[in-house]
Each structure stands twice: as C-alpha cells, then as structure tokens.
C-alpha cells in the first residue's frame, strides 16, 4: 500500500516535514557561518602556517612519540594486571576475590586524575620512594592502575563467554585448571574481547593527556601538554589543530579496525 501511494505524493510530503525542517536549519547555519565568520581570523588562530612549521619536528619526535610510548606501556602493564585481577575474581579463594572486587570498584570509582596525583605525589610522600621513569613513568603506572580495573571486567566477561563445555572437556582429558585456563579458555576469551580491548586502547591514547596534572619536563611532554605549552608561546590555537589531527591519525585507523573486527565477529556467529 505504501508503495502505490508513494509515487503519487508530492515531494515535500515524501521527504517528510520533520526532515525538511532539519535541512532548512542546516542550510541556515551554513549560510550564517559563511556570512559572519571572519575567515582570516580563523586562519590566523587555528591554521597559522608559521606556528605549524615551528612545531615540527618536536611535535612528532617528542610529543607524539611520548604519547604512543606511554599508551603502549600503560596498555601492556594494565593488561597484565587486569588478567591477574580477572583470574583472582574467579578464584575459589575468598580473599583473592574480595581483593579483586575491591580493587576494581576503587579504581573505577575514582577519577583518573586523583589516581595520577596519588601515584606521582602521594606514593613518594607515603613510602619515600619514587616510581622510576620520571613523570612519564609515574603517569604510566597511575594510568595502568586505572586501566587494569576496566580491562579486568572485560577479560572476565570474555572468560565467561567461553562455553562451559570447553573447561569440562579440558578437565576430562586430565588437564589441570591452570593449564585448561591458559591453553583452552584464555585464547578463546581474548579472541572474543579483541574489539573492546582495542576500544580501551583508544581511550588510553586520549587519557594520556591527563598526564599534564603531574607536571612534565620538556622531554617528557605528550601531545596535549606540548600543545598547551606551544599555545602560550605562539599566542594562537594552531597547536591544538595540529595535535587534534595527530590524535585522529592514531585513533581513526584503530576505531575503523574495531568496527571491522566487530562486523566479522557478528558474521562469524551467524
């Protein structure tokens, strides 16, 4: 019935009044922007060529490099901690379970900023020793503590998504619980959680921008801190544009990969 009346109706009815209104608003916004925006000012503030030139090569060799290194280290350390926590949470030994639950609730409940400050300033005061690796090292440790809490839950969900029969089959062959977990369950669990783990990695890339709260030396600046320092210096916002593009260059391929993985995973299920 819809099909027969469709061709006969006038175009504004076919498009629908609501959609039409949205198009009109869109066109108005674009027109307003074109008429009133000061393009020269925008260019000077966000796309100042001279500032861009001065940012290179440091923005790559120092800032982008630090961001990538910090993210990879945080992810690696966080993943190991998360695996431990996930296994503890499934342990038959009560205190292990309680510790893991407490840890996960604590670090998911605190703002990451607080954890970073605690690790960088609280620990040295409390225990009289610094975490190695300077500010960058402290940032990495602080952020891995937080990331571990989130990834532990992801890993646990992955373990639980592996059918029970897998553990039973492994045990019935005489494999110990630990062997069955290591060689049968975890490989399947990790396959399931590659997309959410990649998402976590993308979040971490952006979270390294929090390192600014613990202060940095010129050599340990990551992208965001680098941009802020450069902005004060250049008196315009171009550094933000540059690092925004750099962040996107790193994150967009990864999110595209997650989408592909998720699609192929849902295809595999059918």
């Amino acid at each position: 019935m819809v099909a027969t009346t469709r061709a006969a109706r006038p175009w504004w009815k076919r498009v629908g009044l609501g959609r039409l209104a949205m198009y009109v608003v869109l066109v108005l916004i674009v027109l307003l922007f074109v008429f009133f925006a000061d393009f020269e000012k925008i260019q000077r503030n966000f796309f100042d060529w001279e500032t861009i030139e001065r940012m290179f090569p440091d923005v790559i060799t120092i800032a982008a490099k630090n961001t990538v290194i910090a993210t990879v280290l945080t992810f690696a350390i966080g993943l190991v901690l998360a695996l431990l926590l996930a296994l503890m949470k499934r342990s038959t030994i009560g205190p292990y379970r309680w510790f893991a639950s407490g840890y996960i609730e604590l670090f998911r409940g605190l703002p990451a900023l607080i954890t970073l400050i605690l690790v960088a300033f609280g620990l040295p005061i409390a225990f009289g020793w610094d975490i190695p690796g300077g500010r960058l090292g402290q940032g990495v440790i602080g952020l891995s503590l937080v990331a571990a809490a989130y990834m532990a839950e992801t890993i646990r969900a992955g373990i639980e998504a592996v059918p029970r029969g897998q553990m039973e089959a492994a045990r019935s062959l005489g494999m110990s619980r630990a062997n069955a977990m290591a060689f049968i369950i975890l490989p399947q669990a990790f396959r399931i959680i590659i997309p959410p783990l990649t998402n976590e990695f993308v979040l971490l890339i952006k979270d390294t921008s929090l390192f600014f709260v613990i202060g940095t030396t010129p050599a340990s600046r990551e992208l965001t801190k680098f941009a802020r320092d450069f902005m004060t210096d250049a008196r315009n916002a171009t550094p933000l544009t540059v690092v925004a593009v750099l962040y996107l260059l790193i994150t967009l391929p990864l999110t595209a990969m997650v989408r592909r993985l998720e699609r192929s995973a849902s295809r595999g299920k059918r």
């Binding site: 059918p163 029969g165 897998q166 039973e168 089959a169 492994a170 045990r171 019935s172 062959l173 005489g174 494999m175 110990s176 049968i184 490989p187 399947q188 396959r191």
Partner: peptide, 19 residues
C-alpha cells in the same frame, strides 16, 4: 587429573577446542 586421564569422556556437544 591422573585419574581423569584414564577415563575418556565424549560429550553431546562434542566440545572440540575451536581455536
């Protein structure tokens, strides 16, 4: 574990390791 190794078990759902 040693005892189980002596007892083969076959399940309704096969339970092969898919990976």
């Amino acid at each position: 574990d040693q005892l189980r190794a002596k007892i083969g078990m076959v399940f309704q759902q096969f339970n092969l390791f898919p990976h």
